[in-house]
């Protein structure tokens, strides 16, 4: 049937996962309430803090990212401006945008705040479902042991 073979075709040829330079990966959702430029900034920030985008590596330009993601140039510009304000990236006139030099201490701090944020989400979700603190910490322990 037509649909099946497109799916298998793409995996067989394996053109999807050819090893490439560690490229930035941004997946946009148009039905989430988070504005598009925040989604872009969040994912790039996570990839910088997570180390997938090392220091000094070149990011794709505002316009080529807009073209890739099929969004407006203003959206990507706003995302880059936000990241630049946070000191995660800096733009060298004419040469492009690079991941800024992160001092390790600042990086750890950033990661800590990321973890905190995620835990806060978990707590609010748990309260919604009516989980008590013990159940929550029990789950945390199980998850921690799994890794």
């Amino acid at each position: 049937m037509y649909i099946y073979d497109i799916y298998s075709m793409s995996t067989m040829t394996g053109d999807l996962d050819t090893p490439e330079t560690p490229r930035m990966r941004v997946i946009l959702s148009n039905s989430s309430s988070e504005p598009i430029y925040e989604q872009i900034a969040r994912q790039i920030r996570a990839q910088i803090i997570g180390g997938e985008l090392e220091e000094g590596s070149l990011l794709s330009s505002i316009r080529s990212l807009a073209r890739d993601l099929q969004v407006s140039v203003i959206t990507t510009k706003r995302a880059y401006e936000e990241l630049e304000r946070e000191g995660l990236i800096d733009t060298v006139g004419g040469k492009g945008t690079f991941v800024a030099a992160q001092n390790p201490q600042f990086l750890r701090e950033k990661r800590m705040s990321l973890v905190e944020e995620k835990l806060a989400d978990a707590v609010s979700e748990a309260r919604l479902v009516g989980l008590s603190l013990d159940d929550l910490s029990e789950m945390l322990r199980l998850l921690a042991e799994e890794e």
Partner: peptide, 23 residues
Amino acid sequence: KGAADVLARLDAPDVRGVRTGPH
């Protein structure tokens, strides 16, 4: 919407169409 490896995790009959983009 995700990275290329996401496709592997989906079971084939459920997929109705695929389109690969730069990201």
